[in-house]
Every structure is written in structure tokens, then in C-alpha cells.
Nucleic acid binder design. Sequence first.
DNA 1: TTGAAAGCGTTACCAA
DNA 2: TTGGTAACGCTTTCAA
Lengths: 308, 308
Amino acid sequence: MRRRFFKDVHPVAQFAPVSAVSRAFTEGAYLDAEKKRRILTAADQLGYRPNALAASLQGAGSNLVAIFVGEMPNHYDKEVAAALVNGLNAAGKWPIVIGGAGDTAKSAIQNVLRYPLEAMILRSGSLDADVVSSCLKLGIPVISSGRIVEGPAVDNICVRNREAMAMMTEHLINQGRRKFAYLSGPDTFWSTHERYLGFEETVKEHRLEPCSKLYGDYSVMGRFNAIQLHPDLANMDALVCANDAMALGALMYLKSKSISVPGEIAVTGFDDISMAEWPNVELTTLRNPIEALVKGTIDLLMARAADP
Amino acid sequence: MRRRFFKDVHPVAQFAPVSAVSRAFTEGAYLDAEKKRRILTAADQLGYRPNALAASLQGAGSNLVAIFVGEMPNHYDKEVAAALVNGLNAAGKWPIVIGGAGDTAKSAIQNVLRYPLEAMILRSGSLDADVVSSCLKLGIPVISSGRIVEGPAVDNICVRNREAMAMMTEHLINQGRRKFAYLSGPDTFWSTHERYLGFEETVKEHRLEPCSKLYGDYSVMGRFNAIQLHPDLANMDALVCANDAMALGALMYLKSKSISVPGEIAVTGFDDISMAEWPNVELTTLRNPIEALVKGTIDLLMARAADP
DNA sequence: TTGAAAGCGTTACCAA
DNA sequence: TTGGTAACGCTTTCAA
């Protein structure tokens, strides 16, 4: 079959050779100014723009990035995801977002890896080993945001969960609190363990009596909050929660029992989600700075792009 | 320059011709079972998978979809966006997410249109005319989710805002409420107008006195809620809000003033975000069903894919 | 400064 | 069944 020349089909190349069209869209390429203007005008009318995929096949960067956001059980995760999308957009990177968990997410990730990605950003920990090894084989850099993931070619950006929680606990002790309870997240979340360690070591340092530890699920309503299960609320003057969502749930429960906060019991969270700023919400929280996290993630991405 | 044959470079084609490799990855293609197994094994070890971009260049569907989510000022928007991402993933479509507003978003959209998209899903109304005309030229179907957008080749899926709000108002009147105030969203949101109309026509039908209309911004805390500006809370027994977020804000304000809800004033919202189910939140709300919205959006997408 | 053509990684077609 | 190759839309030599 005779090779059809681009001239026959290329929408703009009716007016000029393909190479000229390409040059018209390439900053700083040699091309007669008048000719360039003509091409750009025609392109504009036709709604033509160079196909980014064909360009990437040719060697240009794809500017595509995948983000695995997981299930996003609480508002903090959603806020981070939204901020990440905006940050990437501003940097000229286009995020393909993958959600969910389990086998569905697993196969989704494998499918998305068929696109020429410049990076894989991990916001969820459920599939680490799998994803990391796949990306390694493909030479796609992995950026773990909000958790530490071991592995070659994995960049990490993460808040100091342990130190922060230690500071928070210290602060409560300085305020005179002595009888602690801890509301933990599920063990499947990486941050859970770190945060508890920070709390535990501080309590031990001050030789306070061992406290009770409860488990929530990082959401506000999960099990309408583990706090309900607590044996005796009377024997407690501070409730340290592993994130804001659960702290909010606890707060609502205590309020329904007419227990004064922070009078009788201090409640603390972690993340500083927007709800923590609402009036009537007597919550002390640690700022888990989204802006910094997003900026760090994108800096890492750009660094990898410049020097793989 | 001599044409380099794929054999020289294709990672798997060292073991078999490129066409065989392609067949190994194509369901139902003619290929010796044993040979297929060998190829797949080699591919697995090398981490090789067919490049989706090159495939789409060849004629296969790109499976890429863009979602313009806008600013997502409230939780409902974020919940919808998350559900949409999950739904698309489950359908084997990969969403490129664009956020923000104004010129940044505008140029982001134009850039993303350089990829071969199967559809553009609009969740934000800020850039309609622009996006629709660009997509039309490119032959990319536009799906407007949650709003009605006029235009050729635009599919719409949307809840009946007006009818729903009318029902809600009717319900309040049946309960004996007579003195209404309305807390509206910003005029830049399409749903704002529709919802107000439903409310207004019902109030007029029942010949109730004209009510006061206040403006919020669809967020919980915006201006710590327009309700504060209301001249006299005493002269009101029902506050109809255009969405849950603002209703929640109003609720908190009334609580801080020790006004009983729903005793003295009934407060209603719209959306049924998860927070509306929290205990202590005395909110009557209309379910804006996310599942149905997502399913409808994806059905529309699939229908377009099958028959453009 | 320009046009022609090679080559990117696929899939589809055609002849064997 | 198979292998070879045209074609997809683009950018980048290369030669003029």
C-alpha cells in the first residue's frame, strides 16, 4: 500500500509541510515569522494542537504522573489529594488519579503503568511492595508522600509523626494532665505506629501510669468512635487521638455525655483539617502542613525529572 | 540511515517477533499457546507491558478521560470527585484530573486537550463556553455532571434541584413552618439559581410573606456564615440552605446563640454529605445521590464510546 | 531557513 | 498460524 503522506491528512499541513507545523509550535525553532503566524491561525481555527502522546513517543516528556490515593477515608486525605492535583497542574504535570484498594486498585495500577509516566506518587500504603517493584523495572521514579517507604529509587516526604506526637504529649503533661487515653488508627496505616511511639515514649519518660489504648479507623464515625467503648471516662483527663477525624468523633460523643472539654478531658488531634477551626470545636491539633507536603512532593518530582 | 528493526530494541522481541508479542497481549489473537506463555514469562521478568500511548496512536482507545473538578469548596464536591475517580477506574478509564479556576485552569485544560481524550467531564462551571467549543472542534464528547450545560455534543446528568427544593419547602410548610429565611449560594454556581427557584415558587404558592434571602459561599465557614448577618433571628422559624455545608455553619452559629434546632428554627440543607449523619447535627437534608450521579456519568461515557 | 524522511512502540494487514 | 511491514502523528536530523 502506498504510504499516505501527512499532507493528505494532517489538518494544518494542508497549508504547510508537517515539519513547519511542528516548528510553529516549538518555541525558538527556525521559521519565517509570517509563515508561523499563518500556521498558528489555521491551527486555531481548526482547533488543532499537537498530539502530546505522539510527541512523547518521539522523545518529549509525557508530563503524565500517576497518583495512587487509596481510599481517602477522612477529610485530610481528600484535602491533600486536591492540593496535590492543583500543585501538579500548576507545575504543568497532569495527574492520572487511581483510587480504591485491594485487587481492583492493584490491577488499575498495573494498567496505568502502561502509560509513559514521569512518576508514581503514593498516598496510600496498601500496595507498596507491588507498586515499587513494578515501577523499578520500568524505571519510573516512586515518590511516597506522607509515609516512608523503603526501597531503591523511592523518594520519601513525610512529616515527623513521632516527634510531633511527642511534643503534643509533652505539652499536655506541662498543662497538668496525668491520666491519658490514646485513640489509635488502624495498624494498616503507616502513620499509626509512628504516632503512637511518640506518645508512648513521652508518657513513659514522665513515669505516668500505663494508659488505655483504643482503636478507631481514622474516620469520624467509624464504630461511632471507639471512645464509647472506654471503660471509665471518669478516670481520664486527656484523650490523645491519632488524627483529627477521630478526635472530632470523640468530641461529639463527650459532648453528648455532657463531659466538658477541655475542662474535664482535653482532646487532641493530628492534621489540622479545616473542621478543627470551626467554632464550638474544642480541639487542640497538630498542623500537618499540606502546602509544605505538596511543595515537597513536587520538588522531588522536578528533581527526578531533571536528573533521573 | 538504516532502519533499525524492532528486534534490535524491543525488550521482549529478542525472543519473538514484535507481531507475536503484540498477539500475546491481545485477547483472542492467533498464537501458539506455548509461544504465548514464553513471551508472557519474559515480559513479566522484564516488567514489560505494551505502551498504551503507542497503541492509541495505532487506533486503540486511549482510555484517558479528563475531569475538570474546579475548586471543590465543600466536602460534597470532594466526595463526588473521589467517587467519580473510583467509578472510572472500575470501568477501566483513567482520569486526568484538573483542578483550580481562572486562567491557570484554563491553560491547564488547553494543555490536557493535547492528549487523546475519550471524554471531558465537567464538574465545575467556571469555564464552560471555552471548554465546550474546544472539545467540539476536537471531537471530544463533553459530559456535564451535576449541572446543565447547553451546547451541541454535551451530555448532561443532573439532579432535579428545583423540584427537590420545592418538595423540601413543601415539607416544612406541612410541618407548620411559616416564616422562612433562605441562605443562598454564590451566583457563580449553576445549582444556586435552580434551588432558589424551587424554594421561591413554593413559598409563593402558599402565599407566605416574602422571606429574607442571604448569601453564603457554599462553604461551612465562609464569612462565618451569612446567617450572622440576619437582622432578626426571632422573626424566623425555618432556615432553608442551598447546601449542607452552609447549613452546618448556620447550625453551629445558632447553637452558639442557644437557639434550639429544630425547636425554634428548622434548618435544612442539600446534598446529604456524610457530616449530616453525625450525631448532634440536627439537620434535615435532601439526598443528592452520589452513586447515581457517578453511575449516570459513566453510563453516558460508555454510551459515547460505543456510539460517538 | 526549509522540505523530506527516519524513527518512536504499537497494531493490523497481507502474503506465506 | 505466522513473520514482515505500513501506518498512527509527531519531532528531529540531514541535505539542500
